[in-house]
């Protein structure tokens, strides 16, 4: 299963996809807020979203899995 990990520590600002949605490479899947900046998290692979592991307001650390793909 492919995973999308957080590249840095921060708080989930928006979740831009739904479970079951097809995403393309480079699509913004989530936006984190960190260091007072909005950090778009882009899909590195194309695929169908299986699970969304973090919700708006959650703290995520670097390396945490944000989204998994089927």
């Amino acid at each position: 299963m492919k995973q999308l990990q957080s590249t840095m520590a921060g708080t989930v600002f928006t979740v831009n996809v739904k479970e079951g949605e097809e995403v393309t490479v480079g699509q913004t899947v989530m936006v984190l807020e960190s260091m007072k900046m909005e950090i778009p998290v882009e899909a590195e692979v194309a695929g169908k979203v299986a699970t969304i592991n973090s919700q708006v307001g959650d703290f995520v650390n670097e390396g945490d899995v944000l989204v998994t793909f089927e």
Partner: peptide
């Protein structure tokens, strides 16, 4: 590069 990790230094 503000587009990647907000341009924060690591």
């Amino acid at each position: 590069q503000p587009k990647a990790k907000g341009g924060v230094l690591f």
